[in-house]
Design a protein around this nucleic acid. Structure first.
Length: 1049
RNA sequence: GGGUGAUUAGCUCAGUUGGUAGAGCGCUUCGUUUACACCGAAGAUGCCGGGGGUUCGAGUCCCUCAUCACCCACCA
């Protein structure tokens, strides 16, 4: 059966992959040698609803190369696959799908039904990404496929994979018990679209154009002060009497929640008014709030007016200032970042705030949070609309800082002074956006769960510092340290439904009579209610990790109570909802009624579970142990953990790598992996990040369809130079597709010439190289040994591009360009012994090519492997060679390099003399050293064939019209009397001489420099001398030839 | 504002302890010699961003400047 001219990737890939999978070739431990070392890699789990993009293709190609390489070398190898439940992303995808199918909305169907719906989505789309990874050739142990939410409530495939959920819950509870996890009201990044908190890593800061307004905060009771500005030398440059303090802001709507104005303690301009009150210049006139002027280190006297308004609930800096100074943080917005509508009317709320500002009253956190300081006319408005109204109101009242300008141009129709306009600076500001929602993030004061990262970060730093865990490349190590050394608490709660629900239950102590106020009339103060709700949080008693059986029924009853509430609320989100005031009152009444109607001796404790779910990265942070069956002490855990290598992109160093380090040390006290290889981002050919919106996405599957998986993989490997961006072009892929074809045709040639294991009746997969007598054969065997060492060294150092490059140069540049050509005369005209030896050598060399290329190009090599002979094992399990420099024959090396250089020199001369390519010409030689003579006689047939030479004749001197070819140890000539172009030959010689002389000049400079001889290493000096001698000899020959031509005229 | 990485042939990029520049694509010329036109042969193209320094010797180490990219960051 003759082989096709090219490899049909589309036809073969699926067939080969199925054969591998069917044979169990990917299974953990497959092909392991007895007592072998282990090698394990955890796949960075792709989103379960995702599809394969270039980054996945790159990442998984590199993993597969390492895995296949180790497996062939007999390591006990595990590549652990799986997918990630990807909280926000998956919830988003599912809701989009639901909308497209006119299904009820998430809120309409309720939590439980929605979660079931997401599970359906998960089961449906899981196959997509897995199938795509298989098309890439990924040799992961699919029988062990894991899911970061496997085993959680509603999992229709519960029990089929590792129970990741139980592991996550156990970690949460254990860390909670150790005090590593806490709950608290903190300012967090709030995504108003998804209505959830997100971590700071999920925020993208983008520079956008905004405005900075300047407003006057009048001093209370019409007080005035001397405002004096001085220059650097202390000379007064400006002085006026003021009855206000000037404040700049980019977010005027947050003025409503101001708790103070802060100035730097050293700022002399305001020293006189520190401690007094000023007025927030917005809101109903009769209820203007007064706030204190305080000092804090935070304001920069040199920036703006030097005075900063402090809005603790809506700005991270202000929050810190407020906390330091005991300033109340008044929350102004609801979960959708609209101005609050709940609570008492503005007049009432403002009165309380006033009392606080005057120091007449103190409030606790919950009480402060209950106060809604949004004026009645602004309640319910969007942030931006509220901002517009606030600016209008202040400006209309004349409290904007004014500067000269044309009112028409500024568009202001509210100006009172002709020729003056409000000071509004156009300004680039960094605005936070949600990385998923792309909406503006709002700092929001909410109750959230946090990991106290400061307590667990140290081992993660120390391990890398000490070399226990290595991170490559070096620059990413620095990035890693920088982040961990400045670690912030990790907000791990998300107000989503899809995820690991936090295993904390809350209850009310009814026996304490919590539902009766002091008068005992059954009415419960809303704030008191809220405080109780959270103060009574507890972890369930009997089963620490699951819903306590004792509470189950009661929890349902409590749900019944809640069902009667006016709004269909997720009850544990009461604290977050916009109208929670009304909800709280209703809840209190319902509970009071419940208590009243119960037999006091039968009183039960309503219990409900925290509705929040965990940050996706909390669970994927446990991927290394969770996939191996922890907390069970499974054989896999013992064998494959800690894992060997993690291959990942730099974009998730913080999200994932750092978290895995912290979590694994915190939970099992061990490193998750020994090596981290951080690879570059795949970009388009112009270097742009691939994104759907730019339309520059290269779909790896389309590329695979067009060029075959092997070509795509080889390209990615060849471009994997560490620490760089990877710019992908289809031309490059086509080039490597051609490389595959080249290999294919070399194998085809071997087959046509009986140089295959099939024809030779042996299996060369294990065989040592054949004993060779022919120089060519000795030479190629040595070259093979050389490339084997190069590939191993390169892969060992994660230099995938070096491995790919070495193989490319060897297969194409050595085997195909030279060895196949050299072998032709041997295979056709050689003696039987020479033929046999050459066939055996070629069969062996091709086999070695297949073996060495297999990790990078698994399909075409496996296909050739079976085509060329019956094998004991598939190539995927073939033994990786270990031979080394003992196969390199220095003499053969030297001789073949001489032959090659002679052929190249003759070809070059012929081409430049325009000798017709097919014309056989004689070759003359005037001098040839013994080594050259021997080389010629042993390789005559090859030289003649490849250089198109018909004969060799020794002469004393070259005749007229002869092109001179100088090689080491010999001077050859091409007699071209009739066809030689004297001028062309002169030009050719001059050019070659020019190059040589330049080189000789450099070498002489070095060799003649006494300091060079004194300070350079001996071998470098010797090499330079030797080189110089050779070049001078060659130049001498050419100069003689040049002189002869000159005589010709 | 801080950090990291870049700047090498027309394009995209290699260049691992400093020894004097490489690949693929593209381009030019020639070529159907029994593996391959997804091919073969030959060829052209680089003050290795600018400047300074260390060294016998620097694309490679140090300093500085310029430009670009990315990451981190609280300037109202």
């Amino acid at each position: 059966m003759a082989m096709e001219k090219t490899f049909d990737a589309a036809e073969a890939e699926q067939r080969l992959y199925e054969a591998w999978e069917r044979s169990g070739a990917f299974k953990a431990g497959a092909n392991a040698a007895p007592g072998a070392e282990t090698f394990s890699i955890m796949i960075p789990p792709p989103n379960v609803t995702g599809s394969l993009h270039m980054g996945h293709a790159f990442n998984n190609t590199l993993q597969d190369i390492l895995v296949r390489w180790h497996r062939m070398r007999g390591f006990d190898t595990l590549w652990q696959p799986g997918t990630d439940h990807a909280g926000i992303a998956t919830q988003m995808v599912t809701e989009r799908d639901m909308a497209a199918n006119d299904e009820p909305t998430r809120v309409e169907m309720g939590r439980e039904a929605f979660i079931d719906r997401v599970w359906q989505q998960k089961v449906k789309s899981r196959g997509t990404i897995i199938g795509q990874l298989k098309r890439l050739g990924a040799s992961a142990d699919w029988s062990r496929e894991a899911f970061t939410m496997g085993g959680a409530a509603g999992d229709p495939e519960k029990g089929q994979g590792p129970n990741f959920h139980d592991a996550v819950i156990k970690v949460f509870v254990d860390m909670y018990d150790k005090g590593l996890i806490y709950r608290g009201k903190r300012l967090v990044n709030w995504d108003p679209h998804f209505e959830t908190a997100i971590s700071d890593l999920e925020v993208e800061n983008v520079e956008t154009s905004g405005h900075m307004w300047h407003f006057k905060y009048p001093l209370a009771n019409g007080a005035t002060y001397e405002y004096v500005e001085k220059d650097e030398n202390g000379a007064v440059i400006f002085r006026e009497t003021r009855d206000y303090i000037s404040i700049a802001t980019t977010r005027p709507e947050t003025m409503l929640g101001d708790g103070a104005v802060a100035v730097h303690p050293s700022d002399a301009r305001y020293a006189a008014i520190v401690g007094s009150l000023c007025e927030i210049p917005v809101g109903p006139k009769e209820h203007r709030r007064l706030i204190p002027i305080i000092t804090d280190e935070y304001p920069d006297p040199a920036f703006g007016s030097g005075a900063v308004k402090i809005t603790g609930a809506h700005d991270f800096n202000d929050y810190a200032v407020a906390r330091r100074n005991g300033i109340p943080c008044y929350r102004l917005m609801d979960t959708r970042a609209q101005m609050r509508e709940d609570g008492a009317p503005y007049a009432e709320a403002a009165a309380i705030a006033m009392a606080v500002a005057r120091g007449e009253r103190t409030l606790d956190e919950a009480e402060v949070d209950a106060i809604n300081l949004v004026p009645d006319d602004l309640r319910g408005l969007d942030r931006l609309e509220a901002r517009k109204r606030v600016v209008e109101q202040i400006t209309g009242e004349g409290l904007a800082v004014m500067v000269p300008g044309d009112p028409e141009e500024s568009g202001g129709n509210v100006c009172m002074d002709p020729g003056m306009v409000p000071l509004v600076e156009a300004k680039q500001i960094m605005q936070p956006f949600g990385d998923r929602s792309k909406v503006v993030i709002e700092p929001m004061l909410t109750d959230q769960w946090f990991v106290d990262t400061a307590q667990i970060v140290q081992p993660a730093i120390d391990a890398v510092r000490s070399g226990e865990v290595t991170i490559m490349p070096e620059s990413d190590r620095k990035v890693y340290f920088h982040w961990l050394e400045n670690i912030e608490p990790w907000c791990i709660s998300r107000q989503l439904w899809w995820g690991h629900q936090i295993p904390v239950w809350y209850g009310l102590d009814l026996e304490r009579g919590a539902f009766r106020d002091d008068e005992g009339d059954g009415a419960l103060d809303m704030v008191e209610m809220q405080r109780l709700l959270w103060d009574q949080s507890l972890a369930p008693g009997t089963d620490r990790y699951h819903a306590a059986p004792d509470f189950d029924g009661l929890g349902a009853k409590f749900d019944d109570v809640l069902a009667g509430l006016p709004t269909p609320l997720n009850h544990a989100r009461l604290i977050e909802v916009a109208d929670r005031g009304a909800a709280m009152h209703a809840l209190a009444e319902s509970l009071a009624e419940y208590v009243a109607t119960q037999d006091p001796t039968q009183l039960v404790y309503p219990v409900w579970r925290d509705a929040d779910v965990l940050d996706t990265w909390f669970s994927s942070g446990l991927w290394p142990i969770g996939t191996l069956g922890w907390p069970e002490d499974t054989p896999e855990l013992q064998k494959y953990f800690p894992t060997s290598t993690l291959i990942t992109g730099f974009d998730i160093i913080f999200f994932w790598v750092a978290r895995m380090m912290m979590m694994q040390y915190a939970v099992v006290g061990q490193k998750p992996f020994s090596h981290v290889y951080v690879h570059a981002l795949v970009r388009d050919e112009k270097g742009k990040k691939m994104s759907k919106s730019l339309g520059n996405v290269l779909d790896p599957l389309e590329l695979i369809d067009e060029y075959g998986t092997d070509a795509v993989r080889f390209t990615l490997a060849a471009m994997a130079a560490m620490g760089r961006d990877l710019k992908l072009s289809t031309q490059r892929i086509a080039g490597y597709r051609n490389f595959g074809t080249k290999l294919w045709n070399a194998a085809r040639f071997a087959e046509m010439n009986g140089a295959t294991p099939a024809a030779l009746g042996s299996d060369y997969s294990h065989a040592a190289p054949p004993a060779a007598t022919e120089t060519v054969n000795k030479w190629i065997i040595g070259e093979t040994a050389r490339v084997r060492a190069e590939v191993d060294a390169a892969l060992d150092a994660y230099r995938f591009n070096d491995a790919a490059g070495a193989l490319y140069v060897f297969v194409w540049g050595k085997v195909c360009d030279w060895y196949v050509e050299f072998s032709k005369p041997l295979l056709t005209d050689g003696s039987d012994a020479v033929k046999a030896e050459s066939r055996a050598t070629m069969a062996w060399v091709i086999d070695q090519c297949l073996i060495l290329l297999h990790p990078i190009m698994p399909f075409i090599t496996e296909e050739l492997w079976s085509n060329l002979g019956a094998r004991q094992k598939m190539l995927i399990h073939a033994d990786w060679p270990e031979y080394g420099s003992e196969l390199i024959d220095a003499g053969a090396d030297r001789e073949m390099n001489w032959v090659i250089s002679l052929i190249e020199a003759i070809r070059s001369a012929r081409a430049q003399m325009h000798v017709p390519a097919g014309l056989q010409i004689p070759l003359l030689v005037t001098s040839l050293d013994p080594a050259g003579e021997a080389a010629w006689s042993r390789n005559e047939a090859m030289i003649k064939r490849l250089a198109r030479i018909e004969s060799l004749e020794h002469v004393d001197a070259f005749p007229k019209g002869c092109a001179t070819v100088a090689v080491e140890g010999g001077t050859f000539g091409l007699p071209l009397a009739d066809i030689i172009d004297v001028e062309a030959e002169k030009a050719r010689l001059d050019k070659t001489l020019g190059k040589l002389e330049k080189e000789i000049g450099g070498l002489k400079g070095r060799v003649n420099n006494p300091k060079f001889a004194a300070s350079a290493p001996e071998e470098v000096v010797a090499e330079a001398r030797e080189n110089l001698a050779l070049r001078e000899e060659e130049a001498e020959t050419l100069r003689a030839a040049r002189a002869r031509l000159a005589e010709l005229g």
